[in-house]
Structure formats: structure tokens, C-alpha cells
Design a protein around this nucleic acid. Structure first.
Length: 446
RNA sequence: UCCUUGGUAGCUCAACGGCAGAGCAAUCGGCUGUUAACCGAUUGGUUGGAAGUUCGAAUCUUCCCCAAGGAGCCA
């Protein structure tokens, strides 16, 4: 047991060497005097081959009776082999010794197909499966990529509170928490706190879980999801869009580079991602409404006609976003939404108070909104006016209003939904698979 | 909250008023190149729950529970 312990991801560096691999049995087939074990070690999958005549009887018999997900330590020689399956494929281990750590009990998730209810009930095991493994590794790369990029741009990560005293933008969608007898809430954004942070640090972001008690049951919704929220001093709406597109392009590029194997497992079409280059089309809300109305007029499907119905002043629903983004091959910015369908703190458009300096980034292929941001109101009186218009409790926003009194500057920020971003980059249907243990309406187990 | 679909073996499903079935998994045996291997055998059931209709209910009716998909709302 003196061989070097290697990771499967780096197996190419060890061709010809005697190595040790520690992992789990992912799948097994046998043919008489041969046993083929597919082993996982967390970094990849490799095939280990046992040939009966060249091994002690008990070693071969032990391999033959291994069950799926049994934990093993395998020693052998790394060989290149065209036909060997794995991640990365093309390599296999010619086994010289096998140590069984534990023979697993009958494993519920077989290589055959399973229903979504069963898989979600067994999420703690499902994450071991190839596709889920690839997806969650991609998620980690996305999170690391976003952090690294912002850090290089001079941003500082600031933690914002999860336990918060008051509603950011209305109380209907917040989870209530009992705080020693007082009612407080789980945060649905760190933005307001970041607006305080920029006056100390210039450019900041918070990155953490956020909570929405909405009774949404769709493939784009979870009650707990991760959000990245950058906030920048001395930044207007146009500068914000530039920052967002640069960040998104750098992120996609990094995923293409670092997650080639994962994207292969996910069967993601790389060429779609390679097209993600600046600039992203900028579409005003006014134009977007006209585009959707035109599509609505042209469609012959009565159901679509119903779903695509929209008047100026209404926010886009997902059918609208889907129809709109399908016309582009890269993310688009939709900017200048009606003030009435956005939050109170957004800067009004010059000479058009019914419109605000807001912008959503919509991902292509029908994925829809992945970021939402705006330039914030920097004038004290204007902010007060908007708080009163929305009938929000001025007292609760005292500290927030204070920020406009001491060196106020134009500033902007946005929130990026991690799960939606990962779902889009991975090309998968439902956001819940991009979180190791998703919380959705009606499911908090496991 | 509303609409739609579903719940039968560990899993995926069939049986749609007349004996509870198949494939996979598991167990045993065979096979020197398997990729969801293949071949043979064995094991496996309170048909989501309750009530009703019927000679007879997995199947029809009512109520309930659970889940999934979608809408509204949102990232």
C-alpha cells in the first residue's frame, strides 16, 4: 500500500505508474474471468479491470461480490485505453490489489431511469450520480468564478445580515422568524445594507442564501436560493450594464475552460456558450412590449395568444421572457421598466417619471431573468417621496435614508440568481438540480 | 391560491369490473473486453388512505393525503 494516492481527474499524468485510488463503486459489469469496476473518487470516474488468472482467488471473488456504492481502495497500473469509459474517459486501472472498506447495502438508485419524486426523496444519494455530480461541480465553478472576477475588479465581499428587522420591499413574500418574542424576517436581499457598505468600501458584493416565501411552483423557483449582489458607488445604469456583461462573459469563458468534462457529462452544446460575447443587445422595455405584442398578434396558437397578452405598464411574465429571449443568441438587457412594477428605490428616468433606471438580464434559450438591477435613488427628497408614495414605514428606513445625507453619490447594483445562472450554463431544465439540497414549495426533505 | 396530471414489487411501468404482471435491481450459477452487457434460475405485493356501489374493485363514485407540471408573483 505504498503507491501514490491519485485523483481520477489527474489520471493522465500517471500513465504507466502503479497508483492507489480511493473511492466508491459506481457501476460494475463482469464477463467470466473479467470484472470491470467503474470507480468514483469525487473528481472523476475511472474503469478498473480485474483479470482472474493474474489475481489471488479471494481478490477476484471480493470484486465479483461488490455492490453498487461499496467503498474500496484499489491499487493498480494506469493504462491508456480507447474503449475505457469514464470521466475523463480513455484510461483504466489494471488492478493488482483491492481492499474493500465497506460492502454497501442494496443501493436504491440504479443505472436505470427514475422518476423525479423518487430522486428528490433520495437527493442525499442522487448527488452521487454523474449528471448531478457534474452540475454541482459546475455550480462551484460558477460561484468561484464570480467571486474571483469581482475580487480582481477591486470589489470587497461584505456579509449582509440574514436576520432582518423589516421588509425590503413589502412583507408578503418574507419568511417570519420569532426573535425572542419580536417578529423579524429572513432576508430576501442584502442590497440595502450594501448601499451602506459602498460608502465605506466603494465597490462591494454580498453572496449568500436568500429567502422568498412565495408560493411559486415552477422550474425557476426555490424558496431558498443563492444570490450574488454587487453594489457600486459612482456608477450609472449604462456602466452597470457594461459591468454585468463583462462579468457574465468572463464567467461563461471560465466554465468552458475549467468544466470541459462536466459540460460533456451534461451534454451541453459548447458552441452555444462560445457565442456569449459582448456586447449584449439592449432592449428598452418600451420596445420589448412592442416586440411581444407583435409576436402575440402573429401567433396562431390560442394558448400562446392568451399567455403573450401584455399592455404597457405590466411586468413581464415568464411566457413573455421566453418568447423575447428566443429571438436572440446571447443574453439581452431589458431596461427602463415602468416605475409601478419595480421597487421604490430605483432612480427615475430623466423626464419620464413613469419609467425607472432598472435593468434585467435575460438569458437566451428561454431561460429568462438571471439578474435584476438598477441605478438607485441618490437624492434624499426624492427617496422620501417614493417611500411615501409606496406607503412604506419611513421609520424603518431611517438608516437607509441617512445614506443620502452624507456624501450621496449616484450608485447602482444588481442581484444575480446563482441557480438560474447555473441552469442556463448547464442547459438543464429545472433550477432545483443546481443546488445540492434544494428547498422548494412543498419539499424541505432531505 | 388556482388549473392539469399522477400515486400498483426497491425502481420504471403494464393490467382499466373477473387468478397481481413484465423489465431492471437484489441473490445464485455461466461467460477473457464490458459500456444501461448477455444467458439461466430464485426472491420480491395491505395496488397512497377512508368510505361507498357491485356476486366480485388496482379498475367505478365521494372525500382526504402526497407528489409533479404550469399560472399568478419573483431572481
Amino acid at each position: 500500500m505504498s503507491n501514490q494516492i491519485i485523483t481520477i481527474r489527474n489520471i493522465a499524468q500517471h500513465v504507466g505508474a502503479a497508483v492507489t485510488i480511493q473511492g466508491w463503486l459506481y457501476a460494475k459489469t463482469g464477463k467470466g474471468k473479467l470484472q470491470f469496476l467503474q470507480l468514483r473518487d469525487g473528481t472523476g470516474i475511472v474503469q478498473a479491470v480485474l483479470f482472474k488468472p493474474s489475481l489471488p482467488e479471494e481478490t477476484f471473488e471480493a470484486a465479483k461480490h461488490l455492490t453498487q456504492e461499496s467503498s474500496v481502495i484499489v491499487q493498480g497500473t494506469v493504462k491508456q485505453s480507447e474503449r475505457a469509459p469514464g470521466v475523463p474517459g480513455g484510461y483504466e486501472i489494471e488492478v493488482t490489489d483491492l481492499q474493500v472498506v465497506q460492502v454497501a447495502e442494496e443501493y436504491p438508485i440504479t443505472p436505470k431511469e427514475h422518476g423525479i419524486e423518487f430522486l428528490l426523496e433520495n437527493r442525499h444519494l442522487w448527488i452521487r450520480s454523474r449528471k448531478q455530480w457534474a452540475l454541482l461541480r459546475l455550480r462551484a465553478t460558477v460561484m468561484r468564478g464570480l467571486r474571483d472576477w469581482l475580487d480582481k475588479q477591486g470589489f470587497l465581499e461584505m456579509s449582509t445580515p440574514i436576520l432582518t428587522p423589516a421588509a425590503g420591499e413589502g412583507t408578503s413574500t418574507l419568511f417570519k422568524v420569532d426573535y425572542f418574542g419580536d417578529q423579524i424576517y429572513l432576508a430576501q436581499t442584502g442590497q440595502l445594507y450594501n448601499e451602506a457598505n459602498i460608502y465605506s468600501f466603494g465597490k462591494v458584493y454580498c453572496f449568500g442564501p436568500t429567502f422568498r416565501a412565495e408560493k411559486s411552483k415552477t422550474r425557476r423557483h426555490m424558496t431558498e436560493f443563492w444570490m450574488l449582489e454587487p453594489e457600486i458607488a459612482f456608477c450609472d445604469l449604462e456602466q452597470l450594464m457594461q459591468l454585468e456583461e463583462q462579468m457574465m462573459c468572463a464567467l461563461v469563458q471560465r466554465c468552458l475552460e475549467e468544466c470541459a468534462e462536466e459540460l460533456k457529462v451534461l451534454e451541453r452544446d459548447r458552441s452555444v456558450l462560445e457565442r456569449i460575447l459582448p456586447p449584449f443587445p439592449r432592449v428598452s422595455y418600451d420596445d420589448a412590449v412592442v416586440q411581444v405584442q407583435k409576436m402575440q398578434a402573429e401567433t396562431t396558437d390560442p394558448e400562446q395568444k392568451q399567455l403573450l397578452q401584455i399592455e404597457w405598464g405590466q411586468d413581464f411574465g415568464s411566457p413573455h421572457e421566453t418568447a423575447l429571449t428566443k429571438q436572440y443568441d446571447r443574453p439581452i438587457f431589458v431596461y427602463g421598466f415602468p416605475t409601478q412594477c419595480k421597487a421604490f428605490y430605483m432612480e427615475p428616468w430623466p423626464n419620464r417619471p413613469e419609467v425607472c433606471k432598472s435593468v434585467d438580464m435575460l438569458a437566451p434559450e428561454g431561460y429568462g431573468e438571471i439578474t435584476g438591477g438598477s441605478e438607485r435613488i441618490s437624492n434624499t427628497e426624492l427617496l422620501l417621496k417614493r417611500i411615501h408614495e409606496e406607503q412604506l414605514p419611513e421609520e424603518a428606513f431611517k438608516w437607509y435614508i441617512d445614506l443620502r445625507r452624507y456624501g450621496s453619490v449616484p450608485h447602482s447594483g444588481f442581484g444575480l440568481g446563482v441557480e438560474r445562472t447555473v441552469a442556463w450554463i448547464a442547459g438543464i431544465h429545472h433550477v432545483r438540480e443546481t443546488n445540492p439540497f434544494p428547498r422548494t414549495l412543498g419539499r424541505v426533505y432531505p
